[in-house]
């Protein structure tokens, strides 16, 4: 227990600052001004002092007592006060801040890229004006193959076209590098489709490729599973269905459990609980041979999904044209 006047004053100040509620302040008041309080003890000392000291000391102790009483009252009133210092109308809006926004396709693209970057995939790029060879022949789609009908192509000159998929980037990467290869590529592709709610002549794809020794069909499923968990949430499941793409064998269509209804069935998944997202499969031997890989050593898988499709499913967008209309009412929502 502090004993000198100064010590008592300092201790009391600290005690009051630390007090959290009115009860605490009252307790402190008893500690200092109660029958056994520190200030009361000083008051009791006054009468025992010599005449010459008594007066000066008495004045000091009484001043301390007065100060203490005021301090208790002040603190008590602070803690219990309902007085308003400000009266602000918080229904008023805050100052306008810059309201920039990345395009929704960019947002989805970056999300997909970050999922794959985190799995150690490189992001590759390639030209949008592509040679017919890289877009078709090297991908096991010879000139007269009916699979070319699947991809109606814009031509710029004989042998030069606008890439119909991001797959030529696979070929370019494989020709440039040696296995192991682990890459994705995102980019704009073009198909000569008449414009409607599900077609635009320009769209965005994400392409993936893994080539190494012993890469299997089961690995494809595992990687796609990680991908959809990363993009659509950890409870999303992957299902493969047979399909045909000339550059893979076996080829598969990838479906995900409908993120909107959780697989119970809704209009988006047409009641099936599954939504088809894109193609995948084991890279065709003809493609590997074309880039000069030894097919008895290396094998792997590839997949290609539409970024628009991912965004449409993720956010329930019904009309693909909206992505290219750039309506601020649309872009501002994401």
């Amino acid at each position: 227990m502090p004993s000198t006047l100064d010590e008592i004053r300092t201790a009391l100040e600290q005690r009051l600052t630390a007090a959290r509620d009115a009860q605490d302040v009252r307790n402190a008041q008893i500690e200092y001004l109660g029958k056994k309080g520190a200030v009361t003890a000083l008051l009791k000392q006054i009468s025992g002092l010599a005449e010459d000291q008594r007066r000066q000391f008495g004045e000091q102790v009484n001043a301390l007592k007065q100060w203490a009483l005021q301090a208790f009252e002040q603190r008590l009133s602070n803690l219990t006060s309902t007085a308003r210092r400000y009266d602000i109308d918080f229904s008023l809006p805050g100052q306008l801040m810059p309201a920039g926004k990345k395009h929704i396709l960019t947002q989805v693209e970056e999300e997909v890229e970050s999922v794959f970057l985190s799995m150690g995939f490189d992001i590759e790029e390639g030209p949008e004006i592509e040679q017919e060879y890289y877009n078709f022949e090297a991908l096991n789609i010879p000139a007269d193959h009916p699979a070319r009908d699947m991809q109606d192509t814009f031509y710029l000159a004989p042998g030069m076209l606008l890439r119909t998929h991001t797959s030529p980037i696979q070929v370019r990467t494989m020709k440039r590098e040696h296995p192991p290869i682990r890459m994705i590529a995102t980019g704009t592709c073009y198909r000569r489709d008449a414009v409607d709610a599900s077609h635009t002549p320009m769209f965005t794809q994400v392409e993936g490729l893994v080539i190494d020794k012993g890469i299997t069909f089961a690995d494809l499923k595992g990687v796609l599973q990680e991908f959809v968990r990363g993009v659509f949430g950890s409870s999303t499941k992957v299902k493969l269905l047979p399909s045909f793409f000339p550059f893979v064998e076996p080829g598969a269509e990838t479906a995900i459990s409908c993120p909107i209804c959780g697989g119970r069935g809704c209009p988006t998944c047409k009641g099936s609980g599954w939504i088809e997202m894109g193609g995948s499969g084991m890279v065709h031997q003809n493609v590997l041979r074309e880039v000069g890989y030894d097919t008895s050593i290396y094998q792997g898988f590839a997949f290609g999904w539409g970024i628009e499709r991912i965004a449409m499913i993720k956010y329930g967008i019904r009309d693909i044209r909206m992505f290219y209309d750039n309506d601020l009412d649309f872009l501002g929502q994401f």
Binding site: L117, P180, V210, Q225
Partner: peptide, 20 residues
């Protein structure tokens, strides 16, 4: 059955993904 096949995460060398 496409869906009966096992799913497996490939054993790949740990490395950083890069972009241009």
């Amino acid at each position: 059955g496409y869906d009966e096949f096992p799913s497996h995460t490939p054993n790949l060398v740990l490395r950083r993904g890069s972009e241009s």
